[in-house]
Write a protein that binds this DNA or RNA. Structure first.
Lengths: 214, 214
DNA sequence: AAAAGAATAGGGTAAACCCCTAATTTTTAT
DNA sequence: ATAAAAATTAGGGGTTTACCCTATTCTTTT
């Protein structure tokens, strides 16, 4: 039995969802909740397996509720519902660990399928949602929009950078790589220049930002 | 008629692909190319609608060839082929504007389907590939149970830390906060001790790791 | 009131950083 | 194949910054 909490501030939609889920033998509606605020108490006082959550609520963002649920009730699954296939909504929902994302325009078959897949431990993102994400990740050089890319650093520089990030001093790096202290200093200087930073703090920040280490 | 160039350094695979495409009436094989280097001349001397490109070549990366094609021949479509569903390969291919990505384990139906979809102006990423990308974007807080919590640092220390990460020197921080150089140095030392690191490199790494800045 | 932590600051030393130059090797482009 | 560019190596000589230890005053907590 999947215990489900539904959060949506459109009463009509809420009731519609309620009717759909009521007909399923393996699903139990814990509550139909009209506001994000009310959901906190419901979560505290009930065992909930899965939350059906509208991303666009009147008074607060569904994303914040999702974040809260993921943190406080890590075993509870979250399926986001949305009117729109907005890229930023979708990627935000994914980054905070929503287990699924479907559109309200989906049929009830897809809703039920998503719920069961998520309950089984997998994730479910509808094909339309998936397509939006995939297209957003794709850089199309036809449309000539450039994004900032990591400065090009050499193999040796990368080795040095790695050791710097691992808190090694210049002398230690020289010993580890069997090269002179002065050589390491050269690499450091070149790294600072290439990455456009003033000191180690900036270097480490950029290295992590551009995923140049590990 | 879709004019296709195939680049792959496994001769057997190349011939197999050749046989498949030969049977299709709407496709024409411009060349079957065994090395990345040779492909540059072929592209220069022929009109190519679509390049079928192995991502793992012996002497050079298929990604670099893709990048070159996207830059020099923006109208030419690129469909990446790969043995593995490696996340980094896939996201790199997408970011440089590959029009599609399928696995070599795909059947010929999927290959032909992908070619035709891409030729029509859309993109095609196989469902396995799509799943890898979607999963990589999703942060699962279930799996990150062993999250160490950030050491407690004071308000002032946090201010100093913030400025350190922003590449300010100790003297600059002293001026910005209207305190002595020596005071800032004390804060620095205490930060190093509290975070359990040896120097600024470690401090910045931990600060970003624990989201103590911004 | 006592204890603990935060914020302040000085003195001394090691490390980082800067500005140069410059040789050899490797990679890239024509 | 050859020239050009980039990478890797290293040094001299100097300035600045970071780091260590100690210590006082102020604030918060017990």
């Amino acid at each position: 039995m999947i215990r489900i909490l539904v959060i949506d501030d459109h009463k009509m939609f809420l009731q519609g969802i309620g009717n759909i889920l009521d007909q399923e033998e393996d699903m139990h509606i814990v509550a139909l909740c009209e506001s994000g605020e009310a959901s906190y108490d419901l979560l505290k006082n009930n065992s909930v397996d899965l939350v059906l959550l509208d991303i666009q609520l009147q008074t607060m963002s569904g994303l914040d509720i999702c974040k809260y649920i993921r943190k406080e009730y890590p075993k509870t699954k979250v399926l986001m519902l949305s009117m729109l296939k907005e890229e930023s909504f979708i990627t935000q929902a994914m980054s905070i660990g929503a287990h699924g994302y479907i559109l309200k325009s989906s049929g009830q078959e897809e809703l039920l399928k998503a719920i069961r897949i998520i309950q089984s431990g997998q994730t479910y993102f509808s094909s339309e949602v998936t397509q939006v994400v995939m297209n957003s990740l794709r850089f199309d050089s036809d449309s000539s929009k450039n994004k900032k890319q990591a400065p090009k650093i050499s193999k040796r520089e990368k080795e040095v950078l790695q050791l710097i990030v691992q808190e090694h001093t210049t002398q230690e790096i020289a010993n580890l790589l069997f090269i002179s202290l002065k050589t390491v200093e050269s690499h450091r200087s070149n790294l600072l220049a290439k990455m456009g930073v003033r000191n180690i703090a900036g270097l480490v920040r950029k290295a992590l930002e551009f995923n140049l280490v590990e």
